[in-house]
């Protein structure tokens, strides 16, 4: 009994140790770059914590390009886009979840297929369409291709289907209109799913790169991911300063946002399952 008990304890402890080791290795690259970004270049790679701390790297890189502008652009893009996607997605999801209409099955299949084909991969064609709409080099031009999100429709529809029928019937009896029922019954009941979608949308569009790179030309419209790319790998060669501070600038805000809302974030990603 006791021998077996101690053996189990030892195996458990080893398992925990192994987990810690793997977790440490996994986070090490990020932690290391963050560490180096606050160190003087000459001692950036040493582990001596008593000297060499500085903000110079960040200041240098920050001043090398209009990053303030890039941040504002990214913020406008991700917030505006999440709001638009939610409005359009909620309306469509409501149609699918509550009403019978001719063509419903076919339309839903159409939405499902779009889950895989991101507009961003149809680079040249969408470049032409968006340019023809006069939106080249604008923030709406970046967002418009994703404004109708198949993923939003799918996710919100799944949530809407769980809304109790009794609530809907009660509201009908009270004479609420169809949009009234959407607003006062469906949306309040599924708030957390919609919030989950918002988090995923914000983080994925904060991270988008290739499409904004193509559809923008000047700092007035570029998001931070595109703005930073030039400083990360300049023709003049890599420097510790540019790389480490550049990384902080591009991952910093989203990372902080994520650490604050980490529980919600992880739940949202699990719920989505089909990003």
């Amino acid at each position: 009994m006791s021998a077996r008990f101690w053996m189990n304890r030892t195996t458990d402890a080893l398992g925990v140790l192994r987990t810690w080791l793997l977790a440490g290795i996994w986070i090490a690259p990020l932690a290391y770059v963050l560490w180096a970004s606050f160190r003087e270049p000459s001692v950036a790679l040493s582990l001596d914590i008593t000297r060499g701390w500085t903000f110079d790297n960040l200041v240098t890189v920050w001043n090398a390009a209009p990053f303030g502008r890039y941040y504002i652009n990214t913020a406008i893009l991700v917030l505006g886009l999440a709001a638009t996607q939610i409005v359009i997605g909620t309306l469509a999801a409501y149609a699918f979840a509550r009403f019978e209409f001719p063509g419903r099955e076919l339309l839903f299949l159409f939405v499902l297929i779009q889950l895989m084909i991101f507009p961003e991969i149809l680079l040249l064609e969408n470049f032409r369409i968006v340019s023809a709409l006069g939106l080249y080099n604008t923030i709406p031009g970046i967002g418009i291709v994703s404004a109708a999100s198949a993923f939003a429709i799918f996710l919100i529809r799944q949530a809407f289907r769980s809304v109790p029928k009794e609530l809907v019937e009660a509201a009908e009896v009270e004479g609420a209109s169809r949009l009234g029922i959407l607003w006062r019954v469906y949306i309040p009941v599924t708030r957390s799913s919609i919030a989950a979608f918002a988090l995923i949308s914000i983080s994925s569009h904060w991270n988008s790169f290739l499409w904004p790179l193509i559809i923008t030309r000047s700092p007035e419209a570029r998001p931070v991911t595109v703005g930073i790319a030039r400083y990360l790998a300049p023709d003049t060669g890599l420097s510790i300063t540019a790389l480490s501070a550049g990384t902080v600038i591009v991952v910093g805000p989203l990372l902080i946002f994520f650490l604050i809302f980490q529980k919600r974030f992880m739940q949202s990603f699990v719920r989505s399952e089909i990003v």
Partner: peptide
């Protein structure tokens, strides 16, 4: 790491 921008 899954949260980071690919560029990051």
């Amino acid at each position: 790491p899954a949260m980071l921008p690919v560029v990051g």
